[in-house]
Design a protein around this nucleic acid. Structure first.
Lengths: 195, 195, 195, 195
DNA sequence: CATGAATGAGCTTTCATTCAT
DNA sequence: CATGAATGAAAGCTCATTCAT
């Protein structure tokens, strides 16, 4: 029923990101998105099941690219330490490139309803898997401590990246997010303990 | 105008936590909260400015206790490592004690509007300050690495605790959250690197 | 049931005039009037049937005095022309003395509901009768034209006084209302036609 | 935002007049007006900003026509006396033609809130200006007494017409309003004094 | 394919009135 | 007599979704 391709499909997704980033999730009415996309209200429903579907599609599309790009970069790194570094760096640098998407991801989409959370679960799973793979490889290669609980470590990694990014967005993206890559990478690798 | 004490005040706060935890933020109408609190709709407005005020008060009240309890526990610990351990342990154990509040904090309140986010900023700041103090003390005493960026470390700590807790809530609190204290503590202290 | 005497009765009436004049009819909640009268909300209902009853009583009490005073002044005048003059003069000067009551009468009470309009009908009737008496006496004494329709003339007189006063109130009572007595009196007596 | 044309716009205005005239201002809920106009509640808000806007538009639309018609009739009259006569006659006859509108104008709209009063100020000003013009012309042509205060005379004219009409409406429009044209006209011109 | 006017269910908040103390 | 905390009905407005054109 809903045709998920075509230039109008993309126009609507892009419009949605802009509107939500600019006006906030609670002011992102379908009619506003339609107007921003230069499309009639009803046209939205030729490409999306309902409003939630716009948001889910938006997130999946963008986050799908995000994960894929990140995965590609990681694949190019040689050492495990490098891979972890690239993971952090790519996370920060990709979100730095698109403030609108960063705001939507870190702030606005969290204000959405349960439906949406479910709809985006799949892509998030892929990101989590990506992080898990790096960790496992590190353990297998004897670089990371063998007793590390992969899932806990992944939550640390993701939780930290997420919190750092959210803080940055809430401070209006005013400083350089990528700059923190090294600090974060160091904390992940060596923790806080001095020698 | 709004009298923020009394047993009805508490009854409404408690009812709100239950209703939101059970039915979700988007189904938590004022009338439902009133009914759950065994109070008339209008009575709500004798104790709260508006609906947002219920949620903000709820969070501040509960989270205020949370921070205070955590702070007290930490004060009792002797070594820095112990303090960090207690920080993690208290975070997990307190949220383990009140699944409803955990759900409201980790999931539902994030679906709220910007106004609420602002209203709860102050208590969160206090929690962040508490974490910062521990980190700073650790650095000052030479336990933590001197080059650590306090704010980044704090974001790692909070981000991790938050992510671990959210995962647990989304898995219906089915496993023992406190059990992860040690893993998390270890990661914070020593990172992932094997020796 | 409602005891219409006592100092609290008066206090409530006076408070009502002040509150309505200051904040407007639509912001004159019972609780505000009670507060202004330094009385509990419930106390209002020991002296008045309901909110409308406050307003009706207020109007009748004040307007009753108004009519009585006006009647007394008129009685003291000798000629018919004098009586008409006094009628106009008293109307303007009495309302000039109490801006709050003027505002309530001319503006706020007209925003009230049908119940109130009915409740104040009786005193208005007395004022209309007073005007009618003057007109009739003028006709009987051959001073006013015998073909004048008393009711129409009365409506002209009251309508004019009312409109002039309302304009004055809406201009914040900034100019001298009584000053217009002569112009109005002249128009009533001789009309607009030049010789 | 609100499209102030189209047949639905008119249907809503007409429905509002009927509902308010029949049930009174305080019983004229938006949903009732919508039902009477055979339109959904939400449709109202495609054509009007809010409830007040319905009433303001209604009044301005109808009263605008009223003033225009009256002005046209007056322009056709030759002598000043004729113009004054036509002014009175048109006022009465136009309101006689639409009892519902008369009731809304004379009774119900006065029960509205300050916002509405402001919104209708402009059209009233135009009516006042029209009356002023007639008076001034009368003075300039030496028909009316040169010492007449235009604004006072206008208040007499409008106040009288208004009071006569209100009385008629409150008596259920049971008698012929236009019949009083002559009495009123005479009073305006010659006053009450016999020769 | 595209439009956009129309729909109508749903929710927060106010405030006159009551009644247990 | 007096209090004032509690009541709960009532109404304006929004906005995702539909469907005739």
């Amino acid at each position: 029923m809903a045709k998920k391709t075509g230039e109008k499909y993309q126009a609507i997704i892009d419009a949605a990101v802009r509107v939500i980033a600019r006006q906030g999730y609670h002011n992102a009415q379908v009619s506003k998105i339609a107007k921003e996309a230069k499309v009639a209200d009803g046209t939205i429903y030729l490409y999306f099941e309902n409003k939630d579907d716009i948001l889910i599609s938006l997130f999946n599309e963008k986050m799908g690219n995000f994960v894929e790009t990140n995965r590609r970069h990681i694949a190019e790194a040689s050492s495990i330490e490098q891979k972890l570094y690239v993971l952090v760096h790519a996370h920060f640098s990709q979100l730095s490139l698109d403030h609108d998407f960063a705001k939507v991801t870190q702030i606005e989409l969290r204000q959405s309803n349960p439906h949406i959370s479910e709809g985006i679960g799949n892509v998030m799973k892929q990101y989590f898997d990506l992080i898990d793979e790096v960790i496992r490889e590190g353990i297998d290669k004897g670089i990371f401590h063998p007793d590390i609980d992969v899932r806990v470590a992944r939550k640390m990694i993701f939780g930290t990246l997420d919190e750092v990014t959210t803080s940055w967005v809430m401070k209006q993206c005013k400083y350089d997010l990528v700059y923190h890559t090294e600090s974060v990478h160091n904390l992940f690798l060596y923790g806080m303990k001095g020698k």
